[in-house]
Amino acid sequence: MPNTSSAFIIQNAILSAKLARKAGNRLSVHGISLTEYLVMDYLCQCPQEVSRIELAEYLGMSASGVTRLLLPMEKNGVVEKVQNPRDARQSLVRLSKTGKSLYQDASVSFTHIAEELTSGLSETQLSKAVELLVKLG
């Protein structure tokens, strides 16, 4: 029998996988995965272009994993590569006009998904859960 800390991590990992699968299935109608949605959400919140390394840290992925994730998004016009004016070796990325439109459409679906998946919790419970997860992150 795992201790409380281990049980928490196990349950969180299982819950995360289930929520990701359900949200990903719903977002597929927009032609995107949950991870792609998270990329668009982060880029939409940022006031300027971001490095792939910053994006990798945010998503908990490797820089090469982010590069592989962004390639089809670039090809489909969802994100744009921008040259870093201070360091030509480093490329930055931002959401394109097409990406912003796709993000807005997908956000409506995502909000519905999120509300459905958390409907058994009160607003207070949700706030406390978010607070706990932020502390762990």
Rank of each mutant, 00 (worst) to 15 (best):
M61H: 14
E74Q: 01
S127N: 15
V134W: 06
S6D: 13
N84G: 03
Y42L: 05
A20N: 07
S127C: 14
R52D: 04
E54P: 01
H112E: 06
G99S: 01
S51Q: 04
E115L: 13
P47D: 03
G99F: 00
K81W: 07
I113F: 06
G31V: 03
A88K: 13
E80K: 11
Y42N: 05
N76F: 02
C46I: 02
L121F: 15
M40G: 08
L55T: 02
S119E: 13
Q90V: 14
T118G: 11
S64P: 06
G99T: 00
I53Y: 13
M1E: 08
P47T: 05
D105Q: 12
L133W: 15
L38Q: 13
R68E: 01
L27P: 09
L136T: 13
L70H: 07
L38W: 12
S51F: 08
R86L: 10
E74M: 00
L95F: 02
T67A: 12
T111F: 10
E115F: 12
K18R: 14
A17L: 03
A13W: 02
S64A: 07
K135F: 12
G77M: 00
L19Y: 13
V78Q: 00
V130H: 10
L27I: 09
M73R: 02
K75L: 02
E57A: 14
S122L: 10
L43Y: 14
S119T: 15
R52P: 09
Y58W: 12
M73D: 03
A20Q: 04
V130E: 08
Y42T: 05
S6I: 12
L121Y: 15
S127T: 15
R52N: 12
V79I: 01
G31F: 04
S28P: 06
K135L: 11
Y42I: 01
